[in-house]
Amino acid sequence: MFAIIAAILFGLALLLQLVGESMGEVITPATLTTAGLLCVALHLAGAATALSGYRRRR
């Protein structure tokens, strides 16, 4: 899930950078890139992974 969010954020950052625009003073291509990198890091760290359903009963 975090990888999909990161891909969307990277796409928006690229689009804004190509157009040369920003969405206010806070949301710039740099902040979207940083948010995308955070989502990639969370994805690689294994955040929000489901482990239920794979347990054995004895």
Rank of each mutant, 00 (worst) to 15 (best):
F2R: 14
A3Q: 14
A3L: 09
I4T: 13
I5Y: 09
I5H: 11
A6K: 01
A6E: 01
A6C: 05
A6M: 02
A7D: 12
A7K: 04
A7M: 12
A7L: 06
I8Q: 04
I8T: 12
L9I: 02
L9C: 07
F10H: 10
F10K: 12
F10V: 14
G11I: 12
G11W: 13
G11V: 08
G11R: 10
G11K: 09
L12E: 15
L12R: 11
A13V: 05
A13F: 05
L14R: 13
L14K: 12
L15H: 09
L16D: 07
L16I: 06
L16P: 03
Q17M: 04
Q17R: 14
L18R: 14
L18C: 11
L18N: 07
V19W: 14
V19N: 11
V19C: 08
G20P: 03
G20R: 05
G20D: 05
G20S: 08
G20E: 03
G20Y: 01
G20H: 03
G20W: 03
E21F: 09
E21P: 05
S22V: 11
S22G: 08
S22R: 15
M23C: 11
G24E: 09
G24W: 04
G24L: 07
V26M: 04
T28Y: 00
T28D: 00
T28N: 00
T28V: 03
P29I: 05
A30Y: 02
A30E: 02
T31K: 06
T31V: 07
T31D: 02
T31G: 02
T31L: 02
L32Y: 10
L32E: 08
L32V: 10
T33R: 01
T33P: 00
T33H: 03
T34R: 01
A35P: 04
A35N: 03
A35S: 11
A35Y: 02
G36A: 00
G36H: 00
L37C: 05
L37W: 06
L37H: 01
L38W: 06
C39M: 02
V40S: 01
A41P: 06
L42P: 03
L42T: 05
H43R: 08
H43Y: 14
H43C: 09
H43E: 14
H43K: 07
L44V: 13
L44N: 08
L44P: 02
L44K: 14
L44G: 10
A45Q: 08
G46A: 09
G46F: 12
A47G: 06
A47R: 07
